[in-house]
Amino acid sequence: MDNLLKVAPSPHVHSGDSVAKNMVRVIVALLPAYAVALYSFGVGALVVSLTAMASCVLFEYLIQRFLLKGKCTINNYSALLTGLLLSFNLPSNLPWWIVVIGSAVAIGIGKMCFGGLGNNPFNPALVGRVFLLFSFPVQMTTWPRPLGWASSYLDAETMATPLSLIKGGKLNELPDVLNMFLANTPGSLGEISALALLVGGIYLLATKVITWHIPVSILLTVAAFSAILYGIDPTVYPLPHVYLLSGGMMLGAIFMATDYVTSPMTHRGMLIYGFFIGIITMIIRVWGVYPEGMSFAILIMNAFTPIINKYVKPKRFGRVTKK
């Protein structure tokens, strides 16, 4: 480099934060849940997650290189994260080629066709998941029993998730709280252990990657909603904690809804966004066709994020309200 003095407008220092750092932190926060997934579903979890991550990174690289002809963006780890999150939303006995299709949709349609990271209106991993849910409804809704390394990849023994039990009215067959908390229930890869996800969430809060607003407002809304339902008819509706601990609730509230790009910018906006995710999720869970509504709720609210950003502004300093 030359010896000339550099000149730039202030500020001349930076916090040292970077996009890659944030992505890596989220990946680190997902590791406990990933470990639980590997422990519970064995080789299936490994195949699905590795396929998803590898294909997401590959698709991003290829699209950026040959279609968009921009600089290589896989080194900010966002594609890796998308792959991991996508696999967390898939059952562990999904054939690998379906996972590849899901990754292609997540990266290609969910993200790159809008111009890459930062420009996508919808959460890419959820776009991929919902696409698969519509395209392969059978494969996407048969969940294997968590039997650890004993379970086989494609011919695993399947069983109903807590949410489908509720839907079927079989409240007495629900697993107990501890099992739901510690991952002894069937479900998608990453959603089975509320404990592991909460540990990750606490890490994200501690490293200031996310703020409390979105997860707390979602969980509180769901808790309040289900408490009211339980109050109305305890024989049809389970206790609130079942809704909180089952399905994609924790994964969605902590990791999917808090995605920077597709969530509102202001804290008040985040609270509104979280509230409506909670409401929509519960409406789908209780009255919808699908047993789980988290992905739909998040995608629907993603669509409202620009409007929230437009109308929910931060409180300005010295703004006199009376005039």
């Binding site: 000339l4 550099k6 000149v7």
Partner: peptide
Amino acid sequence: AKTNRYDGA
């Protein structure tokens, strides 16, 4: 000849 290098926007 350059006497400094601009590094801003």
